[in-house]
């Protein structure tokens, strides 16, 4: 059963990812990307990371993709023009890169599996069945061991917001 769910989600994610690359219109690419993120959220859920799955749907498929769609709508006249793929000009380079990446990552995955560091199947480990479960463990780790990085993240977001505002305002002043 879990295997069927896994293959379903994996097929959805890969198909959506290919569509992101192949679609001629940017809006369709964005919608395919949302589907891909949704399928990945399902995989996160299957891996026992419920909180991350929820964050994936809310932040990634929700907030970030809405931001993308807003920008696409904003720049709509420019995005109407279909830009042909660069694949015609450097086909060997692009395909070689893709094959190389896949092979390297597959090899790395294979080594990890061979090392038997972790238990071999997902059914083997049932952990954190307390009242808070997974999320309680996550919160303990995040707010105790990783408190400083967590706080620094807020500065990063502040800088990013200021940067986005400054970047887009500058042009208004020159007009």
């Amino acid at each position: 059963m879990t295997l069927i769910v896994f293959y379903g989600l994996a097929a959805t994610a890969v198909t959506a990812a290919i569509l992101v690359v192949l679609m001629s219109r940017v809006v369709y690419s964005a919608l395919a990307l949302i589907v891909c993120f949704g399928a990945t959220a399902g995989l996160f859920f299957q891996l026992g990371a419920q909180f991350i799955a929820a964050v994936q749907v809310i932040v990634y498929a929700g907030a970030i993709m809405v931001l993308f769609l807003f920008v696409i709508m904003l720049l709509d006249p420019a995005s109407e023009v279909f830009l042909p793929s660069r694949l015609k000009r450097v086909p060997v380079f692009a395909l070689a890169c893709a094959v190389l990446f896949t092979l390297v990552l597959l090899e790395a995955a294979d080594r990890w599996a061979a090392a038997q560091v972790f238990t071999d199947s997902i059914a083997g480990t049932e952990r954190s069945s307390g009242p808070g479960g997974e999320i309680e463990t996550l919160a303990h780790s995040l707010f105790r061991d990783y408190l400083l990085p967590f706080e620094v993240t807020s500065i990063l977001i502040l800088v990013a917001v200021l940067g986005a505002v400054v970047l887009t305002r500058q042009h208004h002043e020159t007009e």
């Binding site: 879990t2 896994f6 890969v14 990812a17 690359v21 891996l47 990552l105 990890w112 972790f118 199947s121």
Partner: peptide, 18 residues
């Protein structure tokens, strides 16, 4: 029985497509 290799392979494929 889904091994870690399944997930890692899927992640590798998605990364390569990206």
């Amino acid at each position: 029985m889904i091994s870690a290799t399944h997930y890692l392979t899927l992640a590798a494929i998605l990364f390569a497509i990206g």
